[in-house]
Amino acid sequence: MDDQLSIERGCCKKSAGTCSKLEVYDWLNDVVNKSGEDDIIEVRFKNTRKDYYRNVNNLKLKAGDIVAVEASPGHDIGIVTLTGALVKHQMKKHKVTLINGEIRKVYRKAKTVDIDKWREAMSLEHSTMIEARKIAVDLKLNMKIGDVEYQGDRTKAIFYYIADERVDFRQLIRVLADTFRIRIEMKQIGARQEAGRIGGIGPCGRELCCATWISNFVSVTTNAARYQEISLNPQKLAGQCGKLKCCLNFEVDSYIDAQKDFPPSNVPLDSEEGRYYFQKADIFSRILYYGANGSKGLPPVAISVERAKEVIRQNKRGKKVEKLSDGSADKSLKKAQGFEDVIAEESLTRFDEPKPRHRKKKRYPKNNSSRRPKKKS
């Protein structure tokens, strides 16, 4: 039963704990905390919602246990995701809900009655969300209800919504309360948070970062793509949430550090062959590509960063270099390759060519020497 509930809530049970959205690996699980200050546990609810509770009854809890915890009003049902000393470190990253200035409590391990009621409440969430969307459309509210989460005792429901502008949903709350006969709580979320709650697979082939480990969303701009020499194609830069991908910020600091001593890209290089303009850069190989005007018909040239700065210095003195390339970039390209494809593993047509046929050797019986050809004397 516990395994089925874990799957319904979006996580899978393992022998050492749970794997779920925003999972935390307890690397202190084999360390004994002698201070005794490990009475706070981390509990996960639907999708990415987590909170922290005090184990006042000294229950023996481990990751994966289903517990009944304090709520306002009533009680809620959740899954334990973390215990021990690491919980205090997690509390610094996530916001903790307090009641009268104190951390809420763990009541008990969930009973069969609690689990049955929780399962019944979960089965109503999708139909409630669809009905709530229809009510919002009838009231002509410019908002989208993205998800609904029932409390474990089915006395309260959280409606997660997305809105670009401020929405007056007081009338909506009254209609929802009369329709579903429960207490209503409205919580606004962003597009990235909605993608994290729903989940999915990104273009990289892995699960969305916002659904697995990202808890704080930092703004992403197109400058991150410019620093990394990525094409400014909106279809490729946008994630499933419709916003710029969060992963654009992951390596941008390394690219910025690598380009600190690069020459400005808007300065042309003059040589006796013609004037060259910046086209692109291989940042970590420190190679710059310059192309000439189309009328000259000159091919693009790859030069090193040091060579580009040297040419700019000579151009400022009024001198033109004889040739733009000095061969230093070719050496860097050879070092960057590091291997040679001697068996054509990267060729897409290597299986199309017919294999050469080998002639079979004639076999003769061992005892029949008359059939063997005689050697010429």
Rank of each mutant, 00 (worst) to 15 (best):
N57Q: 12
S304V: 00
K375C: 06
E185D: 07
A16G: 07
Q337W: 15
R104E: 01
I79E: 10
Q314D: 06
L333C: 04
I145G: 01
G152E: 01
G200P: 08
G146I: 04
A132W: 02
N57F: 11
H94N: 07
I184M: 03
R174C: 02
A211S: 13
A336K: 11
P263T: 00
V67E: 13
L172K: 04
K309H: 07
W27N: 13
A121D: 04
R49A: 12
G10A: 09
V32G: 13
Y161V: 14
K62D: 13
L232N: 10
H89I: 10
G84N: 06
R108S: 05
N55R: 09
E23D: 15
K360G: 05
N367M: 09
V218H: 11
K361Q: 11
R166T: 14
N233A: 07
D3K: 15
E125S: 00
K34Y: 12
N100W: 00
T155E: 11
V301T: 03
D138A: 15
V113I: 09
R54S: 12
C12K: 10
G74M: 09
P365T: 01
N367Q: 06
G274C: 00
A191T: 11
K60P: 15
L124T: 10
K92A: 04
G196Q: 12
E194C: 06
D253Y: 15
A71Q: 01
R44L: 08
T112L: 13
A238E: 04
G196L: 04
L324C: 14
S328A: 05
S285C: 14
I201G: 11
N266E: 13
P268F: 01
K316P: 09
A258S: 08
V252M: 11
R44M: 15
Q279E: 13
K92M: 04
K375N: 12
I79G: 07
K50H: 04
G239Y: 01
I145W: 06
F351P: 01
L333R: 11
K105Y: 02
N266L: 03
V252Y: 04
E125C: 02
G242L: 03
M186F: 04
L22F: 05
S304I: 00
E185H: 05
E120C: 07
G78K: 00
K323A: 11
R154P: 02
Y161A: 12
Y150V: 02
P234R: 01
A292D: 00
Q240N: 00
K374A: 13
G199C: 08
R154M: 13
D257K: 11
L248D: 06
D138F: 12
V31M: 12
I173C: 02
L82P: 02
I99G: 14
G200Y: 03
A238T: 15
K13C: 12
Q240V: 09
L288G: 12
L61R: 11
K280L: 10
K93V: 06
T349E: 09
R357V: 13
